[in-house]
Nucleic acid binder design. Structure first.
Lengths: 232, 232
DNA sequence: GATTGCCAGATTGTCAAACAATGCTAGGGT
DNA sequence: ACCCTAGCATTGTTTGACAATCTGGCAATC
């Protein structure tokens, strides 16, 4: 038996607290738990069906992920996202996706292939539900970051996307329509996918950067113009 | 009431679990808790003086930071760092520091100033204790990443540095001498600091990239040549 | 003698209940 | 109207307990 070091995927892959964390995470990114909501430990633990210590451990996970904010002796609240966070998040995107675009020259063929696949999904899903479009869009960009070949950077982008998603969902809910997906957005994505497929690093970086800038402006505009009604 | 010095209104700045997490984090990065060590909950909780649930919450924090690895029903162990992790960490450094170097053109004057200050500290401390040199080196690079002006990216780099530090400490302990700080390393840092001060983005990026590549090679060499005795 | 099966100890996983500490709110005194 | 205080709700932390699971060694079997 050669215990080939890297992986010992013992079954049992989900502990209670990870499940609880996933559950809450899903409720947050879907917007079901609105930003600013206080998460009361006793009630929440009861409603989920776990003990308070277990819930608290799960909350620690979410806190570390930045999905909830913790104020001592006050409580834990779903993170509210403001203009500064938006700017920060998009700066992260610029750095990560920009670098990834430029690195498409060195990336493996398989990774390049996945970008194309992600674009295909995005192109075909357009016109469907807004929520699905957001998901496909983000997955496309995720596949771009994957070009860097770094699990850690993938995780960083994941967390950024997770933080961004409730914001986009909220937006789409308010606008009710296709505010998020600008009409020329699909074209931009196609251009990016093409540049990457052709391994034109500089071009891809430029397109990505411009795309991200535009989206940031759009988002800031809507968020800034609409001081969310969340409460006092 | 004159707010003289430390005894200001108790801002409750650290909850128990954050303190415990900090304590353990310090022990891990200093190498006192060697990689691979199992953290037994009862004994550890007792030795620190907190209850088991509190300790577990602290461990969740460290797990999220990647400092410990958790195996269900087995225990939590101080993360062991292998060649893949080294490569990953240095990829993160390449992306972050490279982007930061190039972004020095747009960075604020204050941020640029801090890079210079960090270099001064590094230059003057050289020759001192190895541990201090490592710290100053990392802080210098931290100040470079700060050029990006993104709290999130700062945090990412922080976590990377934290993961890297025990590895460097271990190295310095084995080599006993100046293996980490190559003789020409200080010169490289000076060149980088100069390029940034002059806001030569391209130049800074090139220098940083080369510097990081060299250090990665060095680290991989020593790590690879020395399969640490820790496991089976 | 080597392998297998199995049992006891140790360790983690999870819970219930409790009490202290703190923040918020409402009511009373001025 | 304002300040102060009492009381309630919520978090912070501990204790103790029990179930589930892993580890290592012992005995039985081939």
């Amino acid at each position: 038996m050669s215990p080939s070091g890297t992986s010992a995927p013992r079954l049992h892959r989900s502990s209670t607290i990870d499940e609880v964390a996933s559950l809450l995470r899903a409720d947050i990114v879907s917007g079901e738990l609105a930003p600013g909501t206080q998460l009361r430990e006793v009630a929440l633990a009861e409603s989920i069906g776990v003990s308070r210590p277990s819930l608290r451990e799960a909350l620690q996970v979410l806190r570390q992920e930045g999905l909830v904010r913790h104020e001592p002796h006050r409580g834990t609240f779903v993170t509210t996202i403001g203009p500064e966070e938006i700017v920060d998040i998009y700066q992260v995107r610029r750095v990560l996706e920009g670098s990834a675009g430029r690195a498409c020259r060195k990336a493996g063929a398989a990774q390049i292939e996945r970008v194309g696949a992600a674009f295909t999904v995005l192109a075909e899903i357009t016109g469907g539900d807004n929520f699905d479009v957001i998901g496909a869009d983000l997955r496309f960009h995720q596949s771009i970051v994957a070009l860097l070949g770094s699990p850690r950077l993938d995780a960083v982008f994941d967390s950024v996307v997770t933080a961004l998603r409730p914001c986009l969902v909220l937006l789409s809910r308010e606008a009710g329509g296709s505010t998020i997906m600008r009409p020329d957005s699909l074209g931009e994505h196609e251009a990016m996918a093409d540049a990457i497929a052709a391994r034109k690093g500089r071009e891809a970086e430029r397109l990505l950067s411009a795309h991200i800038d535009r989206n940031q402006e759009l988002l800031l505009e809507v968020i800034g113009a609409d001081p969310t009604e969340e409460d006092e």
